[in-house]
């Protein structure tokens, strides 16, 4: 994966994904294909902090993702990738299993396939 812009472009090209946002865990926006990234970035940070707290309180293993389901059946997913957070808007017609499979493939390439990673 050449850079963050490439990464978010590829995630956004997955069938059924409306767009995505990539931020650092400190809130710095890195790249996005969604129109209003600020709408999502604070929620992504909050969900990361609270999911870690819940994980520690309950003695669970790592948090794979947090999702927010809406009445219109769209869902917003937050993935933690090292020091980054990826937010993805999944539309109702998209299969969850397919979406997760494709996103994890791309995340795997970012974190293991290229030493430069997301920058």
């Amino acid at each position: 994966m050449a850079n963050a812009k490439d990464f978010v472009d590829r995630v956004s090209q997955i069938n059924g994904i409306a767009g995505c946002v990539l931020i650092r865990k400190d809130g710095t926006q890195i790249a996005q294909t969604l129109a209003n990234p600020k709408k999502y970035s604070a929620l992504m940070q909050t969900s990361n902090v609270l999911s870690v707290d819940i994980m520690e309180s309950m003695g669970f293993g790592y948090c794979c993702y947090v999702s927010f389901a809406q009445e219109n059946m769209d869902e917003f997913y937050v993935f933690s990738i090292d020091n980054y957070l990826l937010g993805v808007v999944k539309m109702s017609e998209c299969s969850l299993a397919t979406m997760l499979d494709m996103v994890y493939q791309l995340i795997g390439r970012v974190s293991t396939g290229n030493t430069e990673g997301v920058s």
């Binding site: 999911s51 948090c63 927010f68 389901a69 809406q70 009445e71």
Partner: peptide
């Protein structure tokens, strides 16, 4: 962020 939020799911 989502006024029509229904559920939150945390996948550990």
């Amino acid at each position: 962020s989502f006024s029509d939020l229904t559920d939150i799911t945390l996948n550990f």
